[in-house]
């Protein structure tokens, strides 16, 4: 799916991925320092373009480019496996700073809960990815349990409900509002 508008924030904007973003996506996804916990993409630019064409035509995902306010691309984020009232968030990678990354989470989750009108997000995070476990908790995630992936690596799974998100996100919004634009 494609969202034709722009999710506009104070420090970042989110817009739908286009074919011209293919090289950027490959670069950021294949940078092990940035995308350590998500699969690398073993495709070339043309294959990535074809994948984006397919994604834009599907009915169960949205894929966004994160831009700073000078329109420089700084990352990606996506909501996918949209089924009835729930979905997953992933393909998250960013070279932005903590303010930009926090605002990206707010813009994206506001869109999910208020525009797509979903009720909850399914979340799973590798157990040793402690910073992202903490980040999800900060957005209202409650862990339901632990399991092993196909390679035997442990991960936690849980949910972010709209209700929990609204409760937890207020502090984040207040903090973002307080930060001045330099």
């Amino acid at each position: 799916m494609v969202y034709n508008g722009i999710l506009e924030g104070k420090f970042v904007n989110l817009r739908s991925v286009k074919e011209e973003d293919s090289a950027f996506i490959l670069e950021i996804r294949n940078n092990p320092e940035i995308s350590r916990y998500i699969p690398q993409l073993n495709v070339n630019v043309e294959q990535q373009c074809a994948w984006i064409r397919k994604q834009r035509a599907d009915n169960d995902s949205l894929y966004f480019i994160i831009e700073d306010k000078s329109k420089q691309r700084i990352g990606t984020v996506s909501v996918y496996n949209i089924i009835q009232n729930h979905a997953e968030v992933g393909r998250s990678c960013s070279i932005g700073d903590s303010i930009q990354n926090s605002e990206t989470g707010i813009l994206h989750d506001d869109f999910i809960f208020n525009v797509l009108c979903l009720d909850y997000l399914d979340v799973w995070v590798y157990k040793d990815n402690t910073h992202v476990l903490s980040l999800n908790k900060g957005f209202g995630c409650e862990w339901d349990g632990e399991a092993l992936d196909k390679d035997g690596i442990p991960y936690l799974y849980g949910k972010i409900t709209k209700q929990n998100y609204l409760l937890k996100s207020q502090k984040i919004r207040n903090n973002i509002n307080k930060i001045k634009i330099h």
């Binding site: 903590s98 303010i99 910073h131 903490s134 900060g138 903090n175 930060i179």
Partner: peptide
């Protein structure tokens, strides 16, 4: 620190 994230950084800045 395990708990450190963008949100903690934002809280510290605030």
């Amino acid at each position: 620190l395990d708990e450190y994230s963008s949100l903690i950084a934002l809280s510290i800045m605030s």
